[in-house]
Design a binder for these strands. Structure first.
Lengths: 338, 338
DNA sequence: TCGTTTCAGTGAAACGGTTCAACAAGGCCT
DNA sequence: AGGCCTTGTTGAACCGTTTCACTGAAACGA
């Protein structure tokens, strides 16, 4: 702060109003003092242009009015949107959002979580890459944590918003199976062993049940790289007739790769996404994808964390969101069975 | 903070190491103390698991290690991306990003700027809706401000990254004119009178020069609403043959509206964007748009603000970015002249 | 040898709030 | 009338750092 006019402090207000600084502190928060004192102090404070210093307040009270937002990677469009939306809702609840980006690296995500805790954020909204880790339990000891996406198995978080991935996977594969697809690629995000659960377990079980030939691949977060991964998938000799993507962003990469290779969606390749990002309605054909009620979800997550802030024994809450298949035009029977 | 193990303070480290707390403070920052003391203190601090409290540090030093990011609206995909990228770069420079969203409201943007200043952010990166306002000069007095997009005419900001909108508009309209388009819609963002400069002045001048019939419209930030605006534009009796959008996000709305109305791009409608967002390469046809070197831009902006933090008399810098037309397949001669 | 610089390290004063313990003045009850 | 609770207000401790002013000792030059 180079120039910066000196700010008015609470002490100056107290002097000007002829009361103690404690009285000013109370008066401005409307507690412990009489109506008339409150009014007088408010007037003086306004005249002097007093604004409480949030830093000093944070040091004294232990509250910063800030909530951390921590996903796996902001390269993903859905996560970008989630973070932006969470910031908006938090603002409406008188909090600031501290949005940080591990860029897809699980270790970095942990490092950032620690740093946020040390930064004294009041709460944390996180989509953990490594959910069942006791690391998160440790973090949750220091501040209210709301987790999005996967269960924090052992962690004592204050709130959870879970996607019913089992049902999601089943619906997606059933849908494709019903259209006649037998050889299907499943594109998931890079992550740690625990994130693989939906991909490995659910997909495996479902594939067995339906008698599908499933190929599980990993697509990086960055769109260009995801496109490259999709390109590779489509360049083998026995290419799948359909791709199920664990994120709309991945599906966009598939669209780009398909176009490059001269494949038409859905004639040559069916695609299913997972987020219902607004862009999915812009693509031609519209992407068939799962809606998880993002707006509602964000609001729930923010409400849970804000409500828990300050409570010494907040009640735990958990929401499970059921997938809602939005059929676009990106799926059709495979060519061979036409 | 409900449970939260008590954190180790600098005093405890001082006692354990047998030095004063001042010595610890200096030692950990590697100044004013001997090598051996530094080492001893570091060891003790590590053993005790000491982590400096950022809040206390901020109060004492006046630095928070935080930079505010403030655009017009995070509904816009380019701005979402900008904010995410800025957060990433800041992290690499040991700073946190405080990303806030005015949701397209100019007044709200001002309010948030004030709030960020009061929150003691060390610096601010802003795309002002109302650039020439003296309000920003006032803000810039208190902390280093880097502005993106339009000149902050009278404001004494520490850094500027300017888009050469005059050239951008000229290129876009020349390109469309060259293809044979005469009736062109220009879609800009909602904003205040000052933001209208590129739209009104540049577009007006260029239209006169080229003899174009130009229709300037406003498209909201939210994709659905932008789509509605585009739909309306395409539903009049004398619809334009081309649309020049002041943001790729708007262009996406145009794509969606065109598809709904059964219009094919570029046969029935040519579209030009303005950001070269990654999604523009996914669309079919690829969007013809202007590249402004986002990554480089973000890095420059962050570097300028970080460098200015702490300097009492930082040197002012300014970059002007020239538009780089990326031709996709979204422009072609109008139907009538085929 | 003496006075003057350096160097390491210290104690205490900020920074600007919140909150606790104490107290005075009324009002109420018995 | 005396004791007790309630209400309004205050002084001071506290939050955990940074930083300023200062000291004692060692190093140095003349």
């Amino acid at each position: 702060m180079s120039p910066g006019a000196k700010r008015v402090t609470i002490r100056e207000v107290a002097d000007a109003a002829g009361v103690s600084q404690a009285a000013v502190s109370y008066a401005l928060r409307g507690i412990n003092v009489s109506e008339e004192t409150q009014e007088r102090v408010r007037k003086v404070a306004a005249d002097l242009g007093y604004e409480a210093n949030p830093i000093a307040r944070a040091l004294a009270s232990g509250r910063t009015g800030t909530v951390g937002i921590l996903g796996p990677s902001l390269e993903d469009l859905w996560q970008q949107r989630f973070a932006a939306e969470a910031g908006r809702v938090l603002l409406a609840r008188d909090h600031f959002a501290l949005i940080v980006d591990p860029g897809g690296d699980p270790d970095r995500q942990r490092m950032l979580a620690t740093q946020l805790r040390d930064q004294q954020v009041d709460g944390l909204i996180v989509s953990p890459v490594n959910p069942s880790d006791e690391f998160w339990t440790e973090i949750a000891k220091a501040l209210p944590v709301v987790s999005i996406g996967d269960a924090l198995a052992g962690a004592s978080v204050v709130g959870e918003v879970l996607f019913d991935n089992g049902t999601g996977v089943a619906r997606a594969l059933e849908h494709l199976h019903g259209l006649g697809h037998r050889r299907i690629a499943v594109l998931r995000r890079p992550g740690s062993p625990t994130t693989d659960r939906p991909a490995e377990v659910f997909v495996g079980a479902e594939a067995d049940r339906l008698g599908l030939d499933v190929l599980v691949l990993t697509a990086p977060y960055e769109l260009g790289q995801a496109t490259a991964a999709a390109r590779e998938m489509l360049s083998t000799d026995r290419t799948p007739t359909a791709a199920f993507c664990f994120s709309d962003s991945i599906a966009y990469g598939v669209y780009a790769a398909a176009r490059e290779l001269g494949l038409t969606i859905p004639r040559d390749l069916s695609v299913v996404g997972y987020d219902n990002h607004p862009m999915s309605a812009v693509l031609a054909p519209r992407l068939t994808t799962f809606d998880w009620r993002s707006d509602w979800l964000v609001e729930k997550a923010v409400d849970m964390v804000v409500e828990a802030i300050g409570r010494r024994r907040p009640q735990r809450r958990r929401f499970v969101i059921e997938p809602d298949l939005h059929e676009g035009g990106s799926t059709a029977p495979p060519r061979s069975s036409e």
